[in-house]
Design a protein around this nucleic acid. Structure first.
Lengths: 211, 211
DNA sequence: TCGACCATGTAACCAGTTACATGATTGG
DNA sequence: CCAATCATGTAACTGGTTACATGGTCGA
């Protein structure tokens, strides 16, 4: 730990510095980009970006300069050498894992306290969100195919994140279809021997394909 | 909105009430269960459970009674009728969607600011976590197959959450394999025409399987 | 010229986390 | 009998969100 780079970055700060490493940007642009791409694996509210980027400045990882769009003033941020070093330092750090917050799944888990229609609605909500993700993905495909995406030079990276996210959406949609089909067969949400048999069989079949 | 059930539950409170609907439990047991199952789609720190369940009591959704395990005192919580009503009310509410925080993916996204080895380490971290999830899943399979799981009466529900989580783990592992194989081919993390061609082809192939 | 939306930002609240503390039980 | 781990809980911090406010631009 001896040295001048004591990179105590949070992952969110790193995300912002990573964006600034590509180009100088205003908070609004940073927030928009978070909303466009990063949100699928690191979602943050726009207002948070404003505060966090100011911290980057006070810590010396970025500088702020005042510009104007038309007659309106705005602040544009740029990464500093110290910021680049901190970012590289953070990237050399062991990565945390991945988590998800999946409210439809939570609702399913405790569904026996509600109605069958409630549960079906939650499953359909998951399906709809998955479809929306795929629509957004299809838009990206068009841009990258046509070579019109603003970050064509990053496409070799973006293809890899795209791979994950799009397949995650497909997984969710397909799961929702299977699950809806199963729940529709139920008369109540309670247990019965037939359901139990099918459930155990399903669980075993899923785990068997691990290989 | 006229009525006595003004269920202003958070999803986390609902998760706790859902647990209490199955059986009276102490905070510790609730927290343990959150760590065992729910964490994969609704992760919460144990200490949070302690505070939140006390709020359930002050709001009249649960009651607390003092017991003792051996000579040590502990507090056991039980759901009230009002709590059941609030839970049912919440379940009837439209569901929010699903999100994820995936630090390996974030690191990949901004990987050009770091080294190739950093990136490979992040990908491997994702793979390892996926394997761990599958190991846990295999343990569940054994329990459910043998009929020894403490919540056998919920297996028809658990099979459906299991389906999602296990397939998510498989997806992650397979993605990590593909992605590692691709990155290993790279000499640098920067762009080049070959990488770009392959990337665009990959993106198109993924989206094509949407069917 | 007016409504809608883009762009820019602040403030206050709160959910969630980390860190700590300590008593009981159990296995070696 | 001692270390490890289970069990129980508190306190303090902080990251993140929701809600608000308002100026500018553009198209109908």
């Amino acid at each position: 730990m001896a040295g001048k780079t004591d990179h105590t970055l949070s992952a969110t700060s790193a995300a912002l510095l990573g964006q600034l490493a590509w180009a100088d940007q205003s908070s609004y642009e940073l927030a928009k980009a978070m909303g466009a791409n990063i949100r699928f694996f690191w979602p943050r509210a726009g207002s948070h970006v404003y505060r966090e980027v100011k911290r980057l400045v006070t810590d010396g990882y970025a500088t702020a300069r005042d510009e104007a769009t038309g007659r309106r003033p705005r602040t544009v941020y740029a990464i500093t050498p110290r910021g680049r070093a901190a970012l590289a330092g953070w990237l050399a750090t062991p990565s945390a894992g991945f988590t998800s917050e999946n409210e439809p799944l939570l609702r399913l888990f405790i569904a026996t306290s509600g109605s069958k229609e409630d549960l079906l609605a939650a499953i359909r909500a998951a399906r709809e969100q998955a479809e929306e993700m795929m629509d957004i993905g299809d838009g990206l495909v068009a841009q990258f195919s046509a070579g019109t995406h603003p970050f064509m030079d990053e496409v070799h990276i973006r293809a890899l994140t795209f791979d994950y996210i799009y397949n995650w959406a497909i997984l969710t949609r397909d799961w929702a279809d299977r699950t809806e089909a199963e729940v529709i067969r139920w008369r109540t949400l309670g247990p019965n021997p037939g359901k139990r048999r099918r459930a155990v069989a399903r669980i075993r079949a899923i785990a068997k394909i691990r290989s």
